[in-house]
Amino acid sequence: MAPFGLMTAGASWLAKSFSVFSSTSTLARCTSVLQATYITPVKCLTSQASGPPKRPLNGYLRFVIQQQPVITRHYPEIKSVDIIRKIAQQWRTLTAEQKKPFEEASRQAREQFKVDLQRYQALLTPAQLQQQIQERRQRLAKRRTIVKKRELTSLGKPKRGRTPLNIYISEHFEEARGLTTQEKMKSMVQDWRSLTSHQKQIYTQLAEDDKIRYKNEIRSWEDHMVEIGREDLVREKILPTKKKPATKAKAKTIKKGTKKGTKKVALKTVKKATAKKPTTSRKLTKG
């Protein structure tokens, strides 16, 4: 079965490709590549015997895997992204009868996937099943985080202020020691630690300025989010408070408590006064 990376890449390229190749000349050139001799019988891509079964590809991605070497042979000079775009254009020009072999293979693979999944889950222990559920929740949470981050980016949310170390790395990354990015980052962190406080002062001041920039931009951005009805993206501390009835009720209870407290104090003083009166009267009678 095709690796998951290819499947995700094909899906993302598909989303980008629908806005490309609108001219008739390009369409004619793309459709000429797809001929009857290039459409080979579609194999049913099954999952691996060991480990959890992988989800099958849909009809379009099966078509991509089949046509990619064909387009590469005809257009060896173009990039991989353009190859996928050409394949997407071909897929849109296919008739329902031409798409049927790919969709039928996908349907058979889905049925086989259900059988393989049941067989695999029957061999798992309860602890392994629980671990799979936890991993699935983590993947979904990560996916939701990515989706939310993309949404915030599309809405123009300003970037957070950079730290002094971030500013130092961005300015000296090119001349850093090391071949890979990880080696360069490690060497720059070591160089940052060896700097004196006076040398770090300029980056600290730049970080403070960037922090002020972020505060101003995030305030105006959140005001705009409130205007367009996206209060869910705004921090709670700038939203209008709606706890006035609760505060009034709390104030009433405090007043009642203070009244009860004063009453208790008054009762205690009366009791003390009454308790001392007999002693004074006894002293007077003795005298």
Rank of each mutant, 00 (worst) to 15 (best):
residue 6 L to Q: 12
residue 7 M to G: 00
residue 10 G to T: 09
residue 11 A to Y: 13
residue 12 S to Y: 12
residue 15 A to N: 06
residue 16 K to C: 02
residue 17 S to P: 03
residue 19 S to L: 15
residue 22 S to N: 13
residue 22 S to Q: 15
residue 24 T to E: 11
residue 27 L to V: 10
residue 31 T to D: 05
residue 31 T to H: 14
residue 32 S to M: 06
residue 33 V to T: 02
residue 34 L to V: 15
residue 35 Q to L: 10
residue 36 A to M: 11
residue 36 A to V: 14
residue 36 A to T: 15
residue 37 T to S: 14
residue 37 T to C: 12
residue 41 P to N: 01
residue 45 L to A: 01
residue 50 S to L: 05
residue 53 P to V: 02
residue 53 P to H: 01
residue 56 P to A: 00
residue 57 L to N: 02
residue 59 G to C: 01
residue 62 R to G: 01
residue 70 V to Q: 13
residue 73 R to Q: 00
residue 75 Y to V: 01
residue 75 Y to E: 01
residue 76 P to G: 01
residue 81 V to I: 15
residue 82 D to R: 00
residue 83 I to H: 09
residue 84 I to V: 15
residue 85 R to W: 10
residue 85 R to S: 14
residue 86 K to D: 15
residue 86 K to M: 12
residue 91 W to M: 03
residue 93 T to K: 06
residue 100 K to V: 00
residue 102 F to I: 00
residue 102 F to C: 00
residue 103 E to G: 06
residue 104 E to A: 09
residue 105 A to R: 04
residue 106 S to V: 14
residue 108 Q to R: 13
residue 109 A to P: 13
residue 111 E to D: 06
residue 112 Q to L: 05
residue 117 L to G: 00
residue 119 R to V: 01
residue 121 Q to C: 14
residue 122 A to Q: 12
residue 127 A to R: 11
residue 129 L to H: 13
residue 130 Q to K: 04
residue 132 Q to Y: 10
residue 132 Q to V: 09
residue 136 R to N: 04
residue 141 A to I: 07
residue 143 R to T: 11
residue 148 K to C: 02
residue 151 E to A: 04
residue 151 E to V: 14
residue 156 G to M: 01
residue 159 K to M: 09
residue 159 K to S: 02
residue 161 G to L: 07
residue 170 S to T: 10
residue 171 E to M: 09
residue 176 A to P: 03
residue 176 A to D: 00
residue 178 G to R: 14
residue 180 T to S: 07
residue 181 T to A: 11
residue 182 Q to K: 10
residue 183 E to V: 04
residue 186 K to Y: 13
residue 187 S to W: 11
residue 189 V to P: 15
residue 189 V to N: 14
residue 192 W to K: 03
residue 193 R to K: 02
residue 195 L to R: 07
residue 196 T to A: 03
residue 196 T to C: 00
residue 212 I to K: 12
residue 214 Y to F: 14
residue 216 N to L: 13
residue 216 N to M: 06
residue 222 E to I: 01
residue 226 V to W: 13
residue 226 V to F: 04
residue 227 E to C: 10
residue 228 I to M: 11
residue 232 D to M: 03
residue 234 V to G: 05
residue 236 E to T: 12
residue 237 K to E: 00
residue 241 T to F: 11
residue 248 K to R: 05
residue 251 A to D: 02
residue 255 K to F: 02
residue 256 K to V: 00
residue 258 T to Q: 14
residue 260 K to N: 07
residue 261 G to A: 09
residue 263 K to Q: 04
residue 265 V to W: 08
residue 266 A to M: 03
residue 267 L to T: 03
residue 268 K to F: 13
residue 271 K to S: 07
residue 273 A to C: 08
residue 279 T to I: 05
residue 284 L to E: 10
residue 285 T to I: 15
residue 286 K to P: 07
